[in-house]
Structure formats: structure tokens, C-alpha cells
């Protein structure tokens, strides 16, 4: 029996070292050791960017958390902390449960390989075992609606078809924690409807949803909690309409 998913961030801060070409290279380290003295610190040029500061978040199973914030407010960084990619430089992040992020749904796809091979690649990348993939592969092919094209190289697909395949595989999983940067929607009208339905199924199937989005509609339709990030801090955290009313300009 799996433990129920939960996320707990206490006093989390994330600091990025930004190495410009100068500090990235060993040459400068060696040279500065040779030249020595006070200059090297200025010449070293490593800058620390505070991506996140003082984040306290407790997310329990059943919560659908929306993330809002302007560009550069730390949404992506927080998504990466929540999916266990960045370990906080300060504070603690306890993440219970397997987590899949649908940030770039084409990750791992090889254009030269056939659609079928790509399904296997992509699902392996998302953490499915070959047995699990075999159980789902027919359903995925069916959903993608690619028919006989499934055994053709991926590069021969139109961009719409490529997206459909990526979408079909990426949404075939039911992780405990699902992290998304923007809602996935794709394809022509007919596919869009089915895709929408499938996204709903995925979202309902997970215990915790974390969704960063700029769309009020989508956030209101799918979330029951909204976190507003500003300059790497939580500006507001609460019920969807309340936060949305404050974050989104009133005329929309």
C-alpha cells in the first residue's frame, strides 16, 4: 500500500549560483590562485540569485494547487523544488509520493524513431516499467488517433500529429503528484474535446496537482487553492477566487 502523497516545505530558499564564463572555468580559478589577492573576488564574477525565499507550504492529498505570478517570480523554480529536482539550499522540503512533471511533454522523443518506439521511450522516461507500458500502449495509440502512422518515423508526422502523440503518452500516467507548467491543450477541435476530457481524468486521478498557469479560467476550473508568488516569496496563499480577485486585474 502506497503512502498518501504530501508535500511540506519549511523555510525553503533556493539560491542559484550564476557562473558567467569567467567563473565557470577552471582556468580562472587557477589564474586567480596565481595572481592572488583581492582582485580575484571581483573578477571571479559569480553572482548568487535568490530564486525563492522563505517559502512555507503544506500540501495534502486532495489539494489542487494553482501557482500564479508574473514572469520571473519563481514559478518554474518552485515547480522544480516541488518535483524534487532542486534541493532547497536552505530549509527543508519533504515530498512524499511519486511525482511526474508535465512541463515539456516532448521530452525524450526521438524524431527518427517510430511513433510506437517513442511511446515506449517517453513512458520509460516518465517512470513506467515495460509491463505497465505494454498494458497501456494500445490505449495510447488508440487515443492518439494516428492509426497506421504509429509505425512511421516520428519526423514524418505533421506538427499537430506530433503533439497528439506526445500528449497521448504523457497523459497515460496517473502519478500521485502531478506537476504542470501551463495546461496542456492541443489539436484540432475534435481532438481538443477528447484531450480536455483526458486531462480531467488525469487531474482527478492524482492526489496532488500543482499547476502553474496564467489563465484564470483554467485555474478556477481545476484548482481549489491558489498560491501567488512574487519575487520568489509567497505573496498570497488561499482560496481560489480570493487570490484570483487580487492577482488578476478586475476587468478580466
Amino acid at each position: 500500500m502506497k503512502k498518501t502523497a504530501s508535500i511540506e516545505l519549511t523555510n525553503v530558499a533556493v539560491e542559484f549560483p550564476v557562473f558567467n564564463a569567467a567563473s565557470m572555468s577552471l582556468k580562472n580559478r587557477v589564474l586567480s590562485a596565481v595572481t592572488g589577492g583581492a582582485i580575484d573576488r571581483q573578477h571571479d564574477g559569480s553572482v548568487i540569485v535568490r530564486g525563492l525565499q522563505n517559502i512555507n507550504l503544506k500540501i495534502a492529498a486532495g489539494e489542487r494547487v494553482g501557482l500564479v505570478g508574473h514572469n520571473g517570480s519563481g514559478k518554474t523554480t518552485l515547480l522544480r523544488v516541488l518535483s524534487g529536482i532542486y534541493h532547497p539550499t536552505q530549509g527543508q522540503a519533504i515530498i512524499q509520493g511519486e511525482c511526474v512533471s508535465l512541463i515539456n511533454i516532448s521530452l525524450g522523443i526521438d524524431p527518427e524513431a517510430t511513433g510506437r518506439e517513442n511511446i515506449r521511450l517517453r513512458s520509460a522516461m516518465m517512470g513506467l516499467t515495460p509491463i505497465q507500458t505494454n498494458e497501456r500502449i494500445e490505449e495510447i495509440i488508440d487515443f492518439s488517433g494516428l492509426g497506421d502512422f504509429i509505425d512511421m518515423p516520428f519526423r514524418t508526422y505533421s506538427s499537430g500529429m506530433q503533439l497528439r502523440l506526445a500528449f497521448a503518452v504523457s497523459t497515460a500516467i496517473r502519478p500521485q503528484i502531478l506537476v504542470m507548467d501551463e495546461w496542456l491543450s492541443t489539436g484540432d477541435e475534435d481532438f481538443k474535446e477528447r484531450a480536455e476530457q483526458r486531462m480531467k481524468d488525469v487531474v482527478h486521478g492524482t492526489e496532488i496537482l500543482i499547476l502553474a498557469s496564467h489563465s484564470r479560467e483554467i485555474l478556477q476550473a481545476n484548482c481549489n487553492r491558489l498560491v501567488w508568488l512574487e519575487h520568489g516569496r509567497v505573496r498570497m496563499d488561499g482560496e481560489v477566487t480570493e487570490v484570483a480577485n487580487n492577482y488578476f486585474p478586475t476587468n478580466t
Binding site: 526521438d110 527518427e112 524513431a113 518506439e117 515506449r120 521511450l121 520509460a124 522516461m125 517512470g127 516499467t129 515495460p130 518515423p153
Partner: peptide
Amino acid sequence: HKFHLIATLGWQDVATRYRR
């Protein structure tokens, strides 16, 4: 424990290079 993933990716790397 994720050897299947390693095997898939590794094999794919070789296959891609000589695909056509």
C-alpha cells in the same frame, strides 16, 4: 532498479545513430 530505462535509452542512442 531502473535498468529497463537505462537499457531503453542506451539502445535508443545506438539505434538513432544508424537509423537510416
